[in-house]
Nucleic acid binder design. Structure first.
Lengths: 252, 252
DNA sequence: GATCATAGTCGTCTGCCTGACGATAAACAG
DNA sequence: CTGTTTATCGTCAGGCAGACGACTATGATC
């Protein structure tokens, strides 16, 4: 097929973000309230149009910064001590997913440590961290009526895909450390796994696994007692990004 | 951001296909020769524009049918006895990846059994199955000069991503059966793994693993001798799509 | 037809990893 | 001082994978 500039239908291309964090023992996602029709007043994933001169990952990083203030690191940006992990998730392009026009959305997945200031202040009217369980509960019932409505557009599916990606990827990679601050304890890392998977893990076997995998955790020498109990060793994420053999979730 | 129809830049959206098969003990990909500028005469991945009224997966299935005659089954189309596995791979949208205009390409991965008729006869001038090793060898040297040039656009990276997806996904899923005809032997399945991973596997341990995983293989009762040697039992793919525990590739 | 080459299939053995769980250590709250 | 909490080390049995021996059933070759 020759590339006739008039031969292709024009699309709008957006990035949508599944931003996950662990707060109070629960896996939470960032949701913004829509100020415009359609789905006015409903909760949605943050996102926006890709600009003419930017890459898809740049657009996602820009939206992430606008909504959360987080700097992102991903495939093309090496990891720093602060900032969130960012990776492409999947692309959604059903005709009719947006009633106004043909929109193709390249969804991205971002993983962030619990934010010191949960101040999402972008162009959205309001934003909040909500447990993914609440956001995905169809016809769900939150504490108030506002939370009951399902997410706008096909964002429930996008969120579900992002959560599943995170759940499976921490099995065989060091991605769970993206939910932790730069220095963390084995127990804090374990609580991340427990929140993401929604299960309880044996602290002794977990400790053996993560400390026994070479290159996964590097002791910093310090200790902390911020969880109460006996002081725990502090670690930072090591260079190993792949966990071999993987740590499989307990059977369903 | 309000959705002002004039506020977003228009994009062209295409689907590109990484179609993989196993031929003569090698993992091969479908490549088409470009008949138009830019990259005229160079090899590229098959693909085309997404139409105004079709879903991304539909567009990929249509392109696959045009190029290979294969019917696809994927997330939204249940598996049939014939046809190829189709799934979304990733989306590539660098500004400048196409010198003529802003194009976002949603790449898809298709896995097909060795085709009875390798007759790719779509709109491309010519098409061929080429070992991925040859296509990815930068400044590679094939039998003839034509094969030496790298793939057009960013298609080498897309192909590499697709190959890596296939290599990793057969570890923990039954996807390798997508490379096999409806009925196949354990040895044929093992040769698929060997070709995709580029390693030699122990036939006895492989046999134990795949026949010992419940729901993975279902014996049909028949036997075949098409490989020479002692007749082998014929199987078809069972209902299990996930392989637990996974079959990990030998260490690098 | 005997022999050989080729594949397929069944076992055995050993070492590693995991899940279950006991025991000890080091902090804090009363 | 005692109980509670969390961290960390050890032990043990079962499961699984890699290495590899043995046997079986075909076709090819002499």
């Amino acid at each position: 097929m020759p590339y006739d500039p008039s031969a292709f239908p024009p699309f709008a291309v957006t990035v949508d973000l599944v931003v996950l964090t662990v707060r109070r023992h629960a896996l939470c996602a960032l949701a913004v309230r829509r100020g415009e029709s359609p789905f006015k007043g409903r909760w949605a994933l943050p996102g926006g149009f890709v600009r003419d001169d930017e890459d898809l990952e740049q657009a996602a990083a820009r939206e992430l910064a606008e909504e959360t203030g987080l700097r992102a690191h991903g495939p093309s940006v090496p990891a720093q001590d602060n900032g969130a992990h960012l990776e492409q998730l999947a692309t959604y392009g059903d005709p009719g997913r947006d009633p106004r026009m043909r929109v193709v959305s390249v969804a991205h997945l971002a993983l962030a440590p619990d934010l010191p200031a949960p101040r999402p202040g972008g162009d959205a009217h309001s934003a909040r961290w909500a447990p993914v369980e609440d956001l995905l509960r169809q016809g769900g019932y939150g504490q108030d009526e506002e939370q009951a409505a399902p997410l706008a557009f096909d964002h429930a599916r996008i969120l579900a895909d992002g959560v599943e990606r995170a759940r499976s990827k921490i099995e065989y990679s060091s991605l769970a450390t993206a939910f932790c601050p730069p220095e963390f304890t084995v127990g804090e890392l374990r609580r991340v796994y427990e929140a993401v998977w929604g299960v309880a893990l044996d602290p002794r076997n977990f400790h053996r696994k993560v400390t026994g995998t070479p290159g996964f955790l590097v002791p910093t020498g310090g200790t902390t007692t911020r969880q109460g109990g006996r002081p725990a060793q502090l670690f930072r994420a090591g260079g190993a990004t792949l966990l071999n053999p993987p740590m499989l979730r307990p059977e369903a």
